[in-house]
């Protein structure tokens, strides 16, 4: 399978602290790829770079879609001005545009959509409204059309509502559509956040610890949903997870990070038996499993 996402030499520093040092991996199109590693290994930092919240200090991140579209995720983040830009007004204009309007929002529009470790729903809005906000690209954003409720506006709105209901049904949240997101139980909030991400229409769905705080039943459901998303909706999934049962069950490819570096990657079984990985997790080679 061809790579959807190629990350090369990604590095990130905060002041003097090196968070990522030459991280490189690939996410194959249509795969489920897991990013694992001990706490503080830099997993969430990788996600923050991928989804445009941090601007990496160096490296390359590139998306290449099946339809031939190529996206340079670094350019989208609005890098610093270069001297070369002065000779080319177009390059300068692009850089200026990305500096002003770039970042996470453009990464999301390019198809990289994420969820958060600490759930970030719009708590004072209903579940439905959460899902409608996510459909920015599909609704009619024109002010006048909305004020006059033009036919095309109403059609787009009705379609958005339909799609939202679809995802609510998908994640068994149909009864919660008109409830405030902040009032839902924890497990439902997690699901709603994934549903919201799906409403954006992602090509690469990044889930940051989706199973954190879920009970075993909910975790099992989650793994079925993730597989269903990949199967039925053409989504490539990249996830950070500590629940090794889940990782082993659903992922095609595992990348292990430690101290900001990739120490192992490959098929789940292979990574599980890799002594380097065991050492990273347990501090020393030992007989205990995960």
């Amino acid at each position: 399978m061809a790579a959807l996402l190629t990350v090369r030499d990604l590095s990130m520093r905060f002041g003097g602290v090196v968070a990522l040092n030459g991280v490189g991996f690939e996410v194959a199109r249509g795969s489920v790829t897991a990013l694992i590693g001990p706490n503080g290994a830099g997993k969430t930092t990788v996600f923050n770079c991928l989804t445009g919240f941090y601007r990496p200090c160096g490296g390359a991140m590139r998306l290449s879609y099946a339809d031939g579209l190529q996206v340079d995720l670094i350019e989208i983040l609005g890098g610093p001005f270069r001297w070369r830009d002065l000779s080319s007004p177009r390059a300068f204009g692009r850089r200026l545009y990305y500096k002003m309007f770039g970042g996470a929002a453009l990464a999301a529009r390019a198809g990289v959509v994420r969820t958060f470790q600490n759930i970030r729903l719009f708590k004072e809005m209903t579940a439905m409204e959460n899902l409608l906000v996510a459909q920015r690209a599909r609704v009619n954003n024109q002010l006048l059309a909305g004020l006059l409720e033009s036919a095309s506006y109403r059609r787009a709105e009705a379609e958005a509502v339909e799609r939202a209901w679809y995802w609510l049904d998908f994640f068994r949240l149909a009864d919660d559509g008109n409830r405030l997101a902040g009032e839902l139980p924890y497990g439902r909030q997690r699901r709603l956040e994934i549903a919201r991400a799906m409403c954006v229409g992602p090509r690469l769905l990044c889930l940051d610890e989706p199973a954190a705080g879920l009970n075993p039943n909910e975790t099992r459901e989650l793994s079925e949903w993730i597989l269903a998303l990949r199967r039925g909706h053409g989504v490539t999934v990249c996830l950070i997870e500590h629940d090794m049962g889940l990782v082993m069950e659903i992922s095609d490819h595992v990348v292990v990070l430690d101290h900001g570096q990739v120490i192992a990657s490959g098929r789940p079984e292979r990574v599980r038996d890799d002594p380097v990985v065991l050492e990273a997790y347990l501090g020393a080679p030992g007989e205990e499993g995960w």
């Binding site: 905060f14 002041g15 969430t44 923050n48 919240f53 941090y54 958060f116």
Partner: peptide, 8 residues
Amino acid sequence: GRPEVEKV
């Protein structure tokens, strides 16, 4: 001051 890093 030092620039603030946004917490995500």
